[in-house]
Amino acid sequence: MTVPAIALSGVTKRFGALTVLRSVDLDITAGRATAIVGPNAAGKSTLIRAVLGLTRPDAGRISVEGVPLNGHWDYRRRIGYMPQAACFPENLSGREVIAMLRDLRGRGAPTDEELIASFGLASELDKKVRTLSGGTRQKLNAVIALLFQPSILILDEPTAGLDPVASGILKEKILRLRHAGVSVVLTSHVMSDLEELADDIVVLLEGRVEYQGAISDLARLTGLAGLEKAIASLMLRGRSGA
């Protein structure tokens, strides 16, 4: 059996009285694209943050490509992360932000000039981040996530804030990486994105895994055509069962 890209076992996270993740067991298959979906406050972001080490679980174990997370940060070398909202030091230029992250990673990976060019970002990279529009920052965010040839790509709402053209370019890029063997984990509320990008789907409901499996099996399971209806029915079923 191949080692899962990300494995969670019994992961629980509480914020005060609120339990956000309830003993989550989850294996994210390497080399596939897995979408994590669920209603707001289902625990999607907390799950991603726990994998990145931003949040520490109260119980349970997480491993990334077979390496257990034990407070060390070296495993993040293999992860490219695109947060939902990008925020960079506002007086630096895009190029300087890229240079800083490259310095920190200590790798001479070349910048994806092709992606920069297709985003039309080249002329924007010399301007201060403060002056860039939200969409342009999001493009920069994407370029940074893809910069270091990661073996795992974690994308939190990757197309939010991007215009349709940029969104299409990014999706095409993600698919190409996925075909090249990169494990992709993404969250999105846009159903068409999920249909285009994801092989597997994980439905989180109130901090529990309600469904995990291939996206193609979901319709069969729920007996409903269309991803949106199938997911919605799972969410409703989980809510009425709770």
Partner: peptide
Amino acid sequence: NAREFIELLLAQPVG
């Protein structure tokens, strides 16, 4: 104000 930027840094291989 640097919170989101700190999160981005925390996602890098940095202590």
